[in-house]
Amino acid sequence: MNQTPWNIPFIRGLVGDKLTGWNDLVARIAPYQLSDGRDNFTWELHRYGNFAVSSMYQ
């Protein structure tokens, strides 16, 4: 994503509305800088000492 234009291969060509949608998406996300840091997922234990996957989404 550090290249302009982005070097992203697609299986099918982007034409018409799909190309317009892609260009709109690129314009919306281009100002954001991704970090090289790692994402961490954590689960909180419930009061009984067990966990649920739904707690990760919260």
Rank of each mutant, 00 (worst) to 15 (best):
N2C: 06
N2W: 02
Q3C: 06
T4I: 06
T4L: 10
P5Q: 11
P5D: 10
W6M: 05
N7C: 03
I8G: 02
P9Y: 04
F10Y: 09
I11Y: 03
I11T: 11
R12K: 13
R12A: 03
R12D: 07
G13D: 14
L14A: 08
V15N: 04
V15F: 03
V15T: 12
V15L: 07
V15W: 03
G16T: 00
D17P: 13
D17F: 05
K18L: 10
K18R: 15
T20V: 12
G21N: 06
G21T: 02
W22P: 00
W22E: 02
N23V: 02
N23G: 01
N23W: 03
N23P: 04
N23A: 04
D24N: 12
L25R: 04
A27G: 09
R28W: 03
A30D: 08
A30G: 00
P31I: 07
P31W: 01
Y32A: 13
Y32L: 06
Q33H: 07
Q33Y: 05
L34T: 12
S35W: 03
D36C: 07
D36S: 11
D36P: 04
G37Y: 05
G37Q: 09
R38E: 10
R38L: 09
R38P: 01
D39P: 01
N40T: 10
F41H: 09
F41V: 12
F41I: 11
T42L: 12
T42S: 12
W43I: 14
W43Y: 15
L45D: 05
H46P: 00
H46E: 15
R47G: 06
Y48E: 14
Y48A: 15
G49H: 11
N50W: 11
F51T: 13
A52Q: 10
A52M: 10
V53Y: 09
S54Q: 14
S54T: 13
S54R: 14
S55Q: 15
S55F: 11
M56G: 04
M56E: 08
Q58S: 11
